[in-house]
C-alpha cells in the first residue's frame, strides 16, 4: 500500500507538465501551425484561407476559429480532425473577434467597412452589424458579458458597446492606432494597447475614462520601435505581459503599480500571445522571425523557440 502510494507519487513527480495544443496563425503562408506543448514541436500544419490572423478556440474546445481577412470570412477548424470544416459569415476583411461567455455569440471586427459583425455561432448566421470608428480591430468582452469593447485604429477610440442593445454607450479616446483590448479578470479595468502611440491606456469601464497609462522605455532602442500590440494578463490580475512589436520584447508589467518590471527578449516583431490553461507558459508569435517564443511565466524567462510558418500572427491554446 505504502509502496503503491510512493510509486504513484514518484510517477506524478516524473510526469511531464500537462500537454496542451496551441494553434498559431501564419499570416503570410496561409497556414495554421499546431504545436504540442509537451514536446514543444509543430505536429501539424493546416492549410487555411488567405491572410489568417485572429484565432481563437470555441468555448467548448471543439473548434478553432481563424479570421482569414483576404477571403472575407472566418474559417472553422475541427480540433479533432485538425482540418477546416466550415466558415462563418463575417463582414469584409475580418481581423480580430471576441465571443461571449457562453460561446454563443461572436463579434467580429471588420477592418474594411467600419463595422462590427454579430454572428450566432450555433446557427452560424449573421445577426447584424454595429457601426464603429475607422478600421475596427481590437475586441474584448467584459467578464459579465454585458459590454463589448472595440478599438478603431484610425479613429483612435475604444468603443464601449452594450451587448443587449448593440448600441455604443461610450467612446474613449486613446493614443494612436489602438490594436488590442483586454479586461482585467475582476472587470475593474480595460487595457488598450496603442501601436503608434507606444502606450497602453488603462480605462475605468464604469466611468469610461482613461485612469492611467503604461509607458515603455528600453535603453538603446528608439522610441518609434516600441509598438505595443498583444496583451496577456494572469488570472490573479497581478501581472500583465505586453508584446512590443518591432522592439522584439515582451514587457512584464506589475498591474497594481502599472510599471514595467522586466523586458523579455523574444523573436522579431512580436504580435500576440496566449497562456497555457495552467498558466505555466506563455506563447508569443514573432512575425518577422517566423517563430513562437515560449515563456516560463513564473520564472519570467524565455525557455524555448519554435519555428512555425511565415509571419506568425495569432495564437490560441485549447482550454
Amino acid at each position: 500500500m505504502f509502496g503503491a502510494a510512493l510509486l504513484a507519487a514518484l510517477a506524478l513527480a516524473a510526469a511531464p507538465a500537462h500537454a496542451f495544443i496551441a494553434y498559431v496563425s501564419n499570416e503570410k503562408s496561409n497556414t495554421v501551425s499546431v504545436i504540442d506543448t509537451d514536446s514543444w514541436t509543430v505536429t501539424k500544419t493546416i492549410k487555411v484561407g488567405q491572410r489568417p490572423r485572429g484565432i481563437d478556440f470555441t468555448r467548448d474546445g471543439k473548434f478553432v476559429m481563424v479570421a482569414v481577412g483576404d477571403d472575407d470570412t472566418i474559417q472553422v477548424i475541427d480540433a479533432k480532425t485538425q482540418s477546416v470544416v466550415d466558415s462563418l459569415p463575417s463582414g469584409p476583411d475580418p481581423e480580430l473577434f471576441a465571443q461571449d461567455a457562453a460561446g454563443k455569440i461572436l463579434y467580429v471586427a471588420n477592418e474594411n467597412d467600419n463595422t462590427v459583425t454579430v454572428i450566432d455561432l450555433e446557427k452560424r448566421a449573421r445577426l447584424g452589424d454595429i457601426q464603429v470608428g475607422v478600421e475596427p480591430e481590437g475586441m474584448t468582452i467584459s467578464p459579465d458579458g454585458k459590454t463589448l469593447i472595440n478599438t478603431s485604429e484610425t479613429t483612435n477610440m475604444a468603443h464601449f458597446i452594450d451587448t443587449s442593445s448593440r448600441q455604443i454607450v461610450a467612446n474613449v479616446l486613446v493614443d494612436a492606432r489602438p490594436r488590442f483590448a483586454e479586461y482585467k479578470h475582476d472587470s475593474s479595468e480595460v487595457w488598450v494597447s496603442s501601436e503608434i502611440g507606444g502606450t497602453v491606456s488603462i480605462i475605468d469601464p464604469k466611468k469610461h475614462e482613461v485612469i492611467g497609462k503604461v509607458t515603455f522605455e528600453i535603453p538603446g532602442l528608439r522610441k518609434e520601435a516600441i509598438q505595443p500590440v498583444g496583451i496577456g494578463m494572469t488570472k490573479d490580475d497581478k501581472t500583465a505581459f505586453v508584446a512590443l512589436g518591432p522592439a522584439n520584447r515582451i514587457a512584464v508589467v506589475d498591474v497594481a503599480s502599472r510599471k514595467v518590471t522586466k523586458y523579455l527578449l523574444v523573436g522579431q516583431r512580436v504580435w500576440h500571445m496566449a497562456f497555457t490553461p495552467d498558466e505555466k507558459h506563455l506563447l508569443t508569435t514573432n512575425g518577422v522571425s517566423n517563430d513562437v517564443s515560449v515563456i516560463d511565466v513564473a520564472a519570467q524567462k524565455v525557455i524555448k523557440t519554435i519555428q512555425v510558418g511565415e509571419l506568425p500572427w495569432g495564437v490560441t491554446i485549447a482550454p
Binding site: Q167, I168, A170, N171, V172, L173, H208, E209
Partner: peptide, 8 residues
C-alpha cells in the same frame, strides 16, 4: 465636456 469620454 469631458475629454476622455464623449457621449455617443
Amino acid at each position: 465636456f469631458g475629454l476622455a469620454a464623449t457621449s455617443a
